[in-house]
Amino acid sequence: MNCLEYRRQLGSDPRHESAEMLEHRRGCAGCAAHHARALGFELALKRALAVPVPDGLAERILLSQTTSERSLRLRRRQRWGWSAAAAAVFAAVTLVVIQFAPATPLSRQLVVHLQHESEALLTHTPLPATEIEERFRRRGVRLMAAPPAGVSYAQLCPVGPIASVHMVMPENEGPVTVFFLVHHKGRRGDHVDKGMYVRTVPMAEGTLALVAADPRRFDTLEASWRNSLEGSPAVAAGTP
C-alpha cells in the first residue's frame, strides 16, 4: 500500500483501518501524522453534527402517537356505533315493512290487479274446462271436480307476492273476477274497495277471491268453486 492509497481509504472511512493500512501507517511518519489529523477532524465533525435534541421531543412524539391512537379508537368506536345504529334502524324498518306490508288490504291488491288487466273483463267465450284445469295444474293445484262453467279468461298472475290463477266469469249481473290465491291463508271477509265488492274465502290449499261491481252471484260462485276445489261434501268425506 502506498501513501495515496492509504489516504484515500482513510478519507473514506477514518474510523476503520485495515491491517494493511495499519502496517503502512506504522512505517510512514507522514501518513501517521495524516491519520492523527484525520481523527481530529472526525472528532470536530462529530461534535458539530451532534446538534442538541429539543427537550421533550420523545415525550411529545409519544403524546402525539397515543393521542392520535386514542382518537382513532374513538372514531372506530363511533363508526361502529353508527353502523350498529344504522343496522338497528334498518332492522326496525325491515320489520315494519315485513309486518305491515300485508296490511295493504288484499282486497285493494285484487282490485288494483283487476284494473291493470281490465281487458280480461271483455272476454265472453267460455274456455274449455281442460284449459282451466291446466292453469290450476301449473300452479300445483289439482281440481277435485270440473270447474264451474262460463270461465272466459284464465291466466297465471301474481297478486303482489302471491301466485294466483286469475279468471273471469261473465255473469248476467256483470262480470265476476275470480282469483285462486295458491297457498295463501287468509280470513273469510267481505269488503268494498274503490266501488268494487270483494269476497275472500279460505278454500282448499289457498284462498278464493271474488271481485265484482255486483256481489249477487258471490254465494253461488263460492259454492261452485268449493265443489271444484274441495269436491262435494260426499267426496270430501270419503263416501263413494
Binding site: L49, A50, V51, V53, P54, L57, A58, I61, L62, Q65
Partner: peptide, 10 residues
C-alpha cells in the same frame, strides 16, 4: 422512540 429520536432528529 426513546432510543432513536435523538439520532433521527439530528
Amino acid at each position: 422512540v426513546r432510543a432513536h429520536n435523538g439520532d433521527l432528529y439530528r
